[in-house]
Nucleic acid binder design. Sequence first.
RNA 1: GCCUCAGUAGCUCAGUUGGCCAGAGCAGACGACUUGUAAUCGUCAGGUCGGGGGUUCGAAUCCCUCCUGGGGCUCCA
Length: 572
Amino acid sequence: MTLENIEEYRNKLRHSAAHLLAEAVLKIHPEAKLTIGPPIKDGFYYDFDINVTFSPQDLASIERDMKRSIKRNTKFEGKELTKNEALEIYKHNPYKIEIINSMPKGEIITEYSHSDGKFKDLCKGGHLDKTGEIKAVKLLSNAGAYWRGDEKNKMLQRIYGTAWESEELQQEYLEKRKQAIESDHRKLGTSLNLFFLDPISPANPFFLPEGTFVYNKLIDFVRKLYEKYDYKEVITPQIFSTDLWKKSGHYDFYLENMYMMEIDDHEVGVKPMNCPAHAIIFQSTLRSYRDLPLRIADFGRLHRYERSGVTHGLTRVRSFSQDDAHIFCDQKDAGSEIKNFLEMLKESYTAFGFNQPRLTLSLRPEKRAGSDDMWDIAEEQLRTVLEDFDETFEEIEGEGAFYGPKIDIFIPDVMGREWQLGTAQMDFSLPERFNLEFINNQGEKERPVVIHRAMLGSIERFIGILLEHTGGDLPFWLAPNQINIIPITDSHLDYSKDLYKKLKTKGLRVNIDYSNERLGQKIRNSEIKKIPVMLVIGDKEKDSKSASVRTRKYGDLGTLNENQLIEKLLSF
RNA sequence: GCCUCAGUAGCUCAGUUGGCCAGAGCAGACGACUUGUAAUCGUCAGGUCGGGGGUUCGAAUCCCUCCUGGGGCUCCA
C-alpha cells in the first residue's frame, strides 16, 4: 500500500471503530443521542449527548464490548435514504436532524449498519467491509466537547480511542506515546533545572539561572540577525493609559485578555502587544520615505490573561516576550519585506533543526478593515512570496485577522499538537487608527502599512518546543553548561583546575565535578543533566596534559591533547 | 470558562472495606572509601498528606467547597 492508501484505510478503520464505540455505548445507555464520530490523527472519537459521565471502568467495559463486536465480524452495509425517510427515522435526535437539514440539496443521504442491522447510524460512509478487520482498538480518554465546537451549545461527552490494522502497530503507537512523556518540556524543565511553575502566579513561569541563560542566549541569537537584517531595537513602557488602548482598538476587541488597573483615578492597562507603542514611536517625529522601511524590534514583556484551562507549560502562558517587530513601509514594499523576513526565519529555524515548519496563508474574513483593493494587493503579495518560499503552504479562507491577511508558521510538539511560532501579519487598521503618515518623494503625506512579525514567536513557547524537539539535548552553543570536567580522584583536581581555566578563557562554559563519587556515578550525573561534553581526567591525562572526551552527540572521542581538545570544542 | 482525571518529602511514587507516632528510592547534609566511562557504603535531616469546612471516638482515606495541575472543548487582536 502507498502512504496515501494506508491513510485512507486507517481512516476507514477508525471511522468503523467509532461506530462500534457508539454501538457499545447505546447498549449501556439506550437513551444516549448519537452525534458525530470521525477518524482523527492516530485514532477516532465519538460525541454523545448523555446525562451521565464515563468513568475509566465504563471505558474498559465499553472497550470489551467493542472487541466482542469485532469478533462477531459482521458486515458494514450502507443504505440510501430519502430526506423524508431520514428526517422520520431520526426525528428524536436533534443533532442528526440538524445535519440532515444542513446537507446541500441533491446530496445523497446514507445510513450505515453493522451487527446484522442491529446498529445503524446516519453517516456519509467510509467504512471497512467487516468489523473483524479492526485488529487493534483501545479507548484512551473521555472529555467534554461542545456540539459543533461552539461553547454556546450543549456540552457533549466525547470518548477518544485509537485503532490500528495490527496489534503490533498499536503497541508501537502506545509505546511512542509513553516515551513522548519523557521529552515533555515540563518534565525536562524540572529535571534540567531550567524553569518551574508555582500556583502563586499561575501560568507565569519562573526561569532558573540555567533556563534564563538559554532565554537570553536565544535573544542574543535574534539580535545578531537583527543586525544583519537591519532592525532597530527599542524599549517601550509596560503600562499605558486606557487612551492608548481605546485608540488601538484593544479596548473594544481585547479587553477580556488584558490586565487593567486603576492608578490616580485613571484606568491603565498592561500591554498585551507592542504594536501600539511602536505606532507611538513612529509618529514621534516626522517620517520621510527615506526612513522606510522602518523595522522596530522589541523584546518587551507582554501580559495576556488566558482563561484557566487553556494554559499549558511554557507553550501557553500569561506572561511572555516575543522576538516581536513591526515593519512600517510603503504598501508596494510589503512583499519584499515579507520575503526578507521569511529568509531570516529560514536562517533561524535551520539553526534549530526545524526544517519543515508548516506554513499557512490566512485570507480575508467576513468582518474586516481596509478596502477590497487593499486586501487584493496584500493577499497577492503574500501569496507570491510564499509560492516562492514553500510551495506546500496552505491557504485558509476567512481566517485572516480583521486588520489584514497573515502568514503563520507552525511546529508540532512531542504529542503532535501544533503550535504557532512565527507569524507575519499585514495591518491596514493600525496606521489608520494612529493616523500614521510619512512624506513621500513628491513631498506629499502618505499612509504606510504595518507588518507585525515574529520568528521564534514567544521565547517561552519556543524554548518549550525546542526542548521537546531536542529531548533536552540543546545545541552546544545554547547549552547552559557545555563541558563537565570529571577528575577520577582528588589527585587529579589540580590538573582539572588548570584545564578549567584554559577552557574558560576560550569562552567555553565549563564546570568541574567536585563530588566525592566514583567515576561511573559522576558520568551518570553528567549524562542525566544532558551536558554535551565530559572530560575525564585520570593519571594518564594528567601526565600527558590531555583529556578523555566523551560527548552525548558523538560518543567517545578518545584522548585529545589540549590543543586538539580546544580546537574540537570550538568546532561544536 | 466548560467536561473529565488528579494533587502524599525538592523529584518519582507506595499507603483507601477509615484505626498504632505517614513509608520507600533518588536528590540533599555529614562521614568512610580514592575510585577509569550511566548508580560505593553508612548516618542524619526532610511531610500543614494542595487549602478550608464537615461527617466520625478516630480522616491521607468519606462528603462539601476553593486553589493548582494533566487531558480535551472553547478561545487565541
